[in-house]
Design a protein around this nucleic acid. Structure first.
Lengths: 283, 283
DNA sequence: CGTCTGCTTGATCAGGGTCAACTCAGGTGG
DNA sequence: CCACCTGAGTTGACCCTGATCAAGCAGACG
């Protein structure tokens, strides 16, 4: 499913269209990347690191719907997304899914497995994907030699932590409209930084998955998108989203104008700057 | 602002009541711990590590209400809680607080600062605290020599990540009653593992802070505690909580019996096991 | 002794969840 | 090639959980 729009980079172990690859080489019919390429992908300097051709990391392809790892499975490798889109989910005691993230290019997967030595979440490909394998042991050993790598590791984990903190903040304090709005903005930014259009893009996930991610029902997501569409903030056509008014989406405030406030004594005096914007009064 | 309580780092150079300290030694009128003590505190083997007396980490005391670090402040050190209770908070664009965690003994603070080199959250002492300073640079350098330390670092960060994932799952899927119930169970477990009573303990935080942490209002928290009290799950007297029926608290299911479900095709067939328990019908 | 902060409890309201009907696109098989 | 089926998405009607507003109380503190 979704294969129509997936497209994306598909190294297909068979014919290797190196054109679509930013980096990589074949060996034994598989694709490999060296340390420098991995660093580039992660946006880290990789300064002194020699483009060591002996030090190669294997790529692996997953097709839409395939599981990268499951909950409880023994952990031993991290993954970097080279191309494609995924979701990570938690499964609760009743078998319900809770989406935790939508990893895409340059994101790292599997970090949650380090602690208990078993993955604590499940990762599934939402499109055909190309991932780079990073055997954890090997990686930490390397980190001791190439300090940029070590920094990268700490940095990536910290970044992930900050991301989740922001997520908690959002779930704890924002209205449904605000959540959806920020979700769209975040996606837009992400696509931009991957070199795609930030104004027009395709959602790789279902309304249900978005809802799970945002702590909402799929109906609410659908209704909210429709509402945004009606007031001209975006255009919606199935999975295709057009961003019309980023600023409005960014500043869209929670409807409950307070809560959890310590002292309204605005810390950043920027408090009252945001426009009143009862944009969604139309609802 | 708030300078009354800020004051930062106050190593209590004065009288040193070593009684309340589990480990540490004086030097220049300050308290220090060696690597082994730090490892013990974090529950990591610390096997080969020599009880290196040259390698000392400084303690710092904070009084109730003091700020350990603030958002945006340059990052250079991590903290381990040796004693006391804290909260970490995010401040949104309107000055509202969002509680992220309630760190206590053996928890690590400041990890979110690694990525951007600036703390992205604020930590405040909810009681008098004793923290151990871990200069990040020094720590990573040490990690390259003492591999247990390195492991510890990755482990702690991963653990924190898993904790936040669970938090996201909770905020995204559980009812108010279930959140409060799980919060109490988690606290109970935590106290137990610190050697305190798991059946009777004092909340170190206000209803408001609990509410913020759980994504609820203080009124809802208060009402829920009262309800638990009435049906005999717990006893409540101000900040003092007595746990009466842990099991009920643990299995207390979300009231909305579904949502976010992918396919009811129960993965773990344990789906229907939990008791129907409309425990709170009394509400 | 007045004030302030934390907590409890009640009354009211609405955001968003639930249930349900319907449309649409793609895939399948006769 | 088309009928049929399935899953995604949209939309409406209804209602419940939990937020909001408000009043009152108790302990801490100057």
């Amino acid at each position: 499913m979704l294969s129509t729009q997936t497209s994306e980079i598909r190294p297909a172990t068979t014919t290797l269209q190196s054109s679509s690859m930013e980096a990589g080489r074949q060996r034994q019919g598989r694709l490999w990347s060296n340390l420098k390429e991995v660093c580039d992908l992660l946006h880290i300097p990789a300064a002194s690191s020699i483009a060591n051709e002996e030090l190669l990391f294997q790529h692996v392809q997953f097709k839409t719907g395939q599981r990268i790892h499951t909950i409880g499975q023994p952990f031993d490798t991290l993954y970097i997304v080279n191309s494609g889109f995924l979701k990570t989910v938690l499964i609760d005691e009743y078998g319900n899914e809770q989406v935790l993230s939508f990893p895409m290019k340059s994101d790292m997967l599997g970090v949650d497995g380090i602690h208990t030595r078993h993955y604590s979440s499940e990762a599934v490909a939402l499109s055909d994907c190309d991932l780079i394998l990073l055997p954890f042991k090997k990686l930490t050993a390397l980190g001791r030699i190439h300090l940029e790598l070590e920094n990268m590791m700490y940095g990536v984990m910290s970044r992930e932590l900050v991301r989740e903190q922001a997520m908690i903040g959002m779930l704890g304090a924002l209205s449904a409209e605000a959540r959806v709005a920020r979700f769209l903005v975040a996606l837009s930014d992400r696509f931009a930084q991957m070199g795609y259009s930030s104004k027009l893009f395709n959602l790789r996930m279902t309304r249900h998955e978005i809802g799970s991610y945002l702590g909402l029902t799929l109906e609410t997501v659908s209704r909210t998108l429709s509402a945004f569409n009606e007031i001209g903030l975006i255009s919606v056509d199935q999975r295709t989203i057009g961003i019309k008014d980023v600023e409005a989406l960014k500043t869209l405030r929670r409807l409950p104008p307070s809560r959890t406030r310590g002292k309204p004594a605005g810390r950043t005096k920027a408090s009252e700057t945001a426009p009143p914007s009862q944009l969604l009064a139309a609802l």
